[in-house]
Design a protein around this nucleic acid. Sequence first.
DNA 1: TCCGATTATATTCGATCTGACAATAAGGGG
DNA 2: CCCCTTATTGTCAGATCGAATATAATCGGA
Lengths: 320, 320
Amino acid sequence: MDHQAKGTRKGRAALKADEAKVDLIAVVVAVNDSEPCLLTIGNADTLPSGPYALEHRSLQSGLRGWVEQQTGHPLGYIEQLYTFADRDRIGAERQERAISISYLALTRKEQATGSANCGWRSWYEYFPWEDHRSGTPVVLDILRPRLIEWAEGASDATTRRERRQRAAIAFGFDDRNWNEELTLQRYELLYESALIEEAGGGRDVAPAAVSGKAMIADHRRILATGIARLRSKIKYRPVVFELMRPSFTLLQLQRTVEALAGRLINKPNFRRLVEQQELVEETGETSLETGGRPAKLYRFRHAVLDDRAVAGTKLPLARA
Amino acid sequence: MDHQAKGTRKGRAALKADEAKVDLIAVVVAVNDSEPCLLTIGNADTLPSGPYALEHRSLQSGLRGWVEQQTGHPLGYIEQLYTFADRDRIGAERQERAISISYLALTRKEQATGSANCGWRSWYEYFPWEDHRSGTPVVLDILRPRLIEWAEGASDATTRRERRQRAAIAFGFDDRNWNEELTLQRYELLYESALIEEAGGGRDVAPAAVSGKAMIADHRRILATGIARLRSKIKYRPVVFELMRPSFTLLQLQRTVEALAGRLINKPNFRRLVEQQELVEETGETSLETGGRPAKLYRFRHAVLDDRAVAGTKLPLARA
DNA sequence: TCCGATTATATTCGATCTGACAATAAGGGG
DNA sequence: CCCCTTATTGTCAGATCGAATATAATCGGA
């Protein structure tokens, strides 16, 4: 009565009826020189990953093992992202079931111990339309007419209206505000409209500089999921500090948040928010790196992980 | 180079090295008469679940299939919660790996089509300390000294301070505010301190009326995850309407939100927020159910699922 | 039919928060 | 000593939020 009727199918493939392959996939992020970077292996089009195996004590430790083995990078902060069941991935014809459990990890670039066939790439190479720090990126001037065209290409009027609306919301057309958290929705729209490489077809695919670098299988979708999650999370949890050096200036902190969010923040307001939440404390030293008046150095108050636990790091973003 | 060295382990059990059993588990929620209800099977201590099988087109459709088969309930809104790898669950000794992918589903009680060995229970039967609608529940008067006792029982002073602090934050001791979103943290504290049944031991377990009804395996933890997610989500996405009838009064809507959040909301402020976000529109009819002045009936504006898509239903909660 | 009990709906007010802008302070270099 | 650069502090109006109050509509009993 509990788990019923598992024997009704003909066991056709190598796998038994109720078993599946389980893969662990990592989106490993660091920020360097105001640029959000992704850890990749192979041709910079693959995320670190590997099968969940018997000797792994847990999903997390399995993931750490694979990433360290493939990239030489030990991981700090880890958070589960999403679990996909991707039939297409390995073998649709063989009817294997493959499950991918994806994780978001935050580190710093320096923690590498040499090694391996891996490297860091700005995540905006994969999503050129996501970086609004210098205003609306030019690639959107190319993508917008293509998206409109796709919307108008629908057979019935209802679908057309719906498509126009979805595109307008996701990309901020028609005087709407840009919402940096909609990274996944934007990716899915571009996928549906076949403007990017993964989306089969290929005839309508925009040039790589516009549509961004593709990745194998569904890895770019997983990256989009990670970016969206991170952009949302920095607003209510102090996770940014996982990406910072032990001591830093407030401007460095701001630039890091801006790199992740893909948009600029008002400086005084950012400072006010960080200080009034008591997220940081002065080290007493100053940094002379920037030319002008020396900036005070701060360190993260680890105490907030206890007492403030949930309050969160709101970030003040410009409205329009 | 991609997925390397999968043959290094001795194939010991029935399962092959890189395969695992995958279960789908559902937390199905409805709200009836201002009471948040959970759909259970068996002895009201089991969540609907079943193995992910070959004939399932996707994880979601597999889940829908199992729930409908076990309870006769078709599901509407579904959202993935978390993926657990629970060695303990099925057979630690056999070294099987079992993966549980959990989902949160929202429906209405009426949509049942009779059938089956299942039923609805208020989720506060499992978590009596979570309902603060009538002020701080009395069970906390019993749990608090037990938690303090547990905290003071630690060997070193650092651990003691840390435990006291965690308990105070999670449960709102020492004049802190109650935070309804910390359901999972509270469950984990009670688990660690062995005050609930699942936590092995048993000698310190409080009476069932205080520690709540237990569930099999880790099902109560999964429920806690679902409650926490839902309490967080109603604040920024209009998901409440999945639980409402096609037309409803604003007070009914408020009572539903309060049931989920486990705390009361200021009436005028709630109305203001709902109206200024244009989440609902009047049907033109009124409800006479309540005795006094008839309440206007409203329906959900499905348009907001498009245009406002992400804005969100903030809910105004009392501060202290 | 009038009155009060009950519930729904509308309005107001002050505290706080937020975004935008301006002003001042502290270094380096000519 | 002046000027340029960057850091830091301060101000102000508008929006938001929580709390409390005032008004409206129905029912039932005197």
